[in-house]
């Protein structure tokens, strides 16, 4: 009897959190998917079914068009730049330099801030009337211009800058851990076999960093899709709605406009985007685990 209970103890201990996750995560995902097929406006209403009409309305909407374009720009640049800067920082820090601990903390520190703080601070820095542009002009560089945040086409790059500043340190930490995990003896062995520095990196270091790379892409990718607070704090979607992202679209339509079903449809679109990113990763990870 006691033994049976003891055997089942882990399952029993996990049960509450399992139920909680099932209901609050998967239950609400199902709820949202159902909602996206209804004609709900201010409140969820499951009496009127409209099929894929809400999806058609989302894809026809000019704001969604802007949101998807911005997501492509932001997502691609955010992931590529954080990777490039993160890897570079990690390689430099790995050269056994002095005061590495201090530098590492400095680079990692932005990650400790919330996106709201990052957004507000960068909003001040990039605002032409009180930030960088003004400072440069006061210091005598009268023709200095940096007004991207007020520019319709360039404002989205301001979001990229703030996001990259925040997250590069995190990618650096991932890669630094990866680099430190490489056994020195393998590197020595490669050198003894006559490999140059480039070849060592190409054939030894890079393959060893593959897990770190996968993790970085998946973590940064889903952050890019979910990114909401950064835009809200930095530009509030403006100028006009030129920095709209899928997440701000979803919030606006669900809560501010009384278009709950349309909001749900856009949320499902975001879920699909996350899945496209995560599922292959999970698949490859699980296969490796077997």
């Amino acid at each position: 009897m006691l033994r049976t209970i003891r055997n089942w103890m882990p399952q029993i201990a996990l049960l509450p959190s399992l139920i909680l996750v099932t209901v609050t995560v998967y239950g609400f995902i199902a709820f949202t998917i159902l909602l996206s097929f209804t004609g709900s406006r201010m409140f969820p209403r499951f009496s009127q079914w409209v099929g894929f009409e809400q999806y058609a309305r989302v894809w026809d909407h000019p704001r969604w068009e802007v949101a998807m374009f911005n997501f492509a720009v932001f997502g691609a640049l955010y992931i590529l730049l954080t990777l490039a800067i993160g890897v570079a920082l990690a390689i430099f820090l790995d050269q056994k330099i002095r005061a590495e601990g201090v530098l590492r903390t400095i680079y990692l520190y932005p990650m400790a801030l919330s996106f709201i703080v990052t957004g507000v601070a960068w909003q001040w820095i990039m605002s032409p009337d009180l930030g960088l542009e003004r400072a440069m002009r006061i210091w005598g560089w009268e023709s200095f211009r940096f007004d991207w945040i007020k520019d319709n086409d360039l404002a989205i790059y301001c979001v990229v800058i703030a996001g990259v500043w925040q997250a590069s340190g995190f990618v650096m930490a991932l890669f630094l851990a990866g680099l430190r995990g490489i056994n020195d003896e393998i590197m020595s062995a490669a050198r003894i076999d006559g490999a140059g520095p480039f070849q060592v990196y190409r054939w030894v270091v890079v393959p060893a960093l593959r897990p770190a790379l996968m993790t970085a892409i998946v973590v940064q990718g889903h952050l890019a899709i979910k990114s909401y607070d950064l835009v809200v704090a930095l530009t509030r979607g403006g100028p006009g709605y030129n920095t709209e992202l899928p997440s701000t679209f979803m919030y606006t339509f669900t809560f501010a406009r009384g278009e709950m079903a349309m909001g749900a449809a856009s949320a499902v679109m975001m879920l699909i985007m996350v899945s496209v990113l995560i599922v292959p990763y999970l698949y490859s990870e699980l296969r490796h685990a077997d």
């Binding site: 000019p62 006009g240 406009r257």
Partner: peptide
């Protein structure tokens, strides 16, 4: 609200 927002979208898009 939904129609109001549609007006605002166009006005702000034109202005910016």
């Amino acid at each position: 609200p939904a129609v109001q927002a549609a007006f605002l979208d166009v006005v702000t898009q034109h202005f910016n």
